[in-house]
Design a protein around this nucleic acid. Structure first.
Lengths: 274, 274
DNA sequence: AGGCGGCCACAACATAGGTTAATCGGCCGA
DNA sequence: TCGGCCGATTAACCTATGTTGTGGCCGCCT
């Protein structure tokens, strides 16, 4: 793990992009966020950022690369709970727990920022709108896991696989990682299998079917989605669960501090005072 | 739905019991919590407290009875995401989303409290320790869903079923709903099937196996767990994911407000449970 | 260059779990 | 009291997915 200076503090980081799709945030908030992303580590592929049973440390922001959040059974069976993509947060509520009930492992070279969990409290106090945006990001993660539960419980292998591909497409779009319907999927079939609750052989069969039907193409790690509509329909994909809609108006009342009398609007370009 | 006056405002509600297992809270905090639970509704069995696609309204606290959180596919297949037990919160972060991606339906007569979501912001500002405890409860829910994902993806039918029974036993214990290893399981086999991603027939077979092996007994809605250890071992149950351990010390730094000088210590007279 | 390990691919076979269908008992409303 | 309905139970049969095993490709090390 290499620690490196932040090179693009005031550029648009993936997290910033993601949060911006939800809430218009002020420059001041952008600066605070940039500060959270100041301490940066570079991590090699196939490295654990966190291990099941281990004590939690810092909160982390994924800036670049892919990782997986996964849980293992004592006998080695493994389930990938979710993919960690640029702009995702790792262990946002880690202070609340004594130790981690899952592992996080990098798939590619990764760039992560870390900050001490106390910052979260500070955030809620001083930048409630930003905190709300982060809370949204966290709640959305839960929604994604719940949707994957629906997949594993009630969708067939073909449906699950199609659904996952569309989900990744949508999530990656938000952070500008999709061009013309294709993106890099730095994932072995074993990992896909562990994410979808299938055997590696069956994932292979299923991908073949999707390729044969012309819905997707695979060249190495690049996947091209030829017909999103149809793929989404195969996977019974309904993007409601991604909660991509902008923040509802009522958010202001709930999260902005009553002790900040600045009249800031939740959906405007206004900003609360520090 | 009948609205009724709160009858036991200052008694120990299930939520209070649950939070107390995590954090020792002050009388002031108890009173604030009681205030959140002041507006109470009674709801009949098989009633939706929330419907997929519907706009979110209030935050709710389950005080009595059971409900399920579930998601449905357009063709009717259904997955139960989680059981909502007394002391659980429904839609804690509901302000953040425009509309619900799941439904919540009662299984028994239910007593729920409702409060407007703005209270959550107030909570974070004025009662940070209580807010931390609620955040813990929410984060734990996510952990439970992730563990169920592991079940559906990688555990066999027998393992899943055993695991769920032990999980319910543990969760119900915290709110004093278990006596001598037996509790009321107000659930049809169809619901169990939908929770475990199995067919109704196969759940039946599986329960039979568990009964035949003497691990559990079923009489109507009462289930008796004869040998928790062994049942846990069948289900590869590791309670780590329930995060039942008392709040870590570092919590105080993160969540307590810097502008609050109430002298309450985050870890009170706590000690980790054996 | 040769060998090795990781990953993909596919065929042949095995099985956990799904489906269909029939029976039974309990509860409730007419 | 008599249906009628809902849920549990079980048997017989079926299929989606798992398992085992082989071969091929490619990159990497020595």
């Amino acid at each position: 793990m290499t620690r490196a200076p932040a090179s693009r503090a005031l550029e648009s980081t993936p997290l910033w992009l993601k949060l911006s799709s939800y809430l218009v945030l002020s420059d001041e908030e952008k600066m605070y966020l940039a500060d959270l992303e100041r301490t940066i580590d570079r991590v090699s592929p196939r490295t654990d950022l966190l291990q099941q049973g281990e004590r939690y440390r810092d909160v982390r922001i994924m800036r670049e690369g892919w990782a997986i959040r996964h849980k293992a059974l004592p006998d080695g069976r493994r389930q990938v709970v979710n993919f960690v993509l640029p702009g995702d947060i790792i262990g946002m509520y880690c202070t609340l727990f004594e130790s981690a009930d899952h592992s996080v492992t990098t798939l590619t070279p990764v760039e992560v920022a870390s900050f001490p969990p106390e910052k979260i409290g500070e955030l809620f106090r001083s930048f409630p709108r930003l905190a709300a945006a982060l809370a949204w990001s966290g709640a959305r993660e839960e929604a994604i896991v719940a949707e994957r539960l629906l997949s594993l419980g009630r969708r067939t292998a073909l449906e699950r696989t199609a659904h996952l591909i569309v989900e990744l497409l949508r999530r990656l779009s938000v952070v500008n990682m999709v061009t013309d319907g294709h993106f890099v999927l730095p994932v072995t079939q074993e990992i896909l299998a562990d994410a979808l609750g299938l055997s590696i052989v069956h994932i292979n069969r299923t991908l073949r079917r999707l390729r044969d039907s012309g819905l997707i193409e695979l060249n190495g790690q690049r996947i091209t989605v030829n017909d999103v509509r149809q793929l989404a329909s195969v996977g019974q994909f309904d993007e409601l669960y991604l909660h991509l809609i902008r923040a509802p108006r009522r958010l202001e009342r709930a999260f902005s501090g009553a002790h900040h009398h600045n009249g800031a609007r939740m959906d405007g370009e206004n900003r609360p005072k520090a």
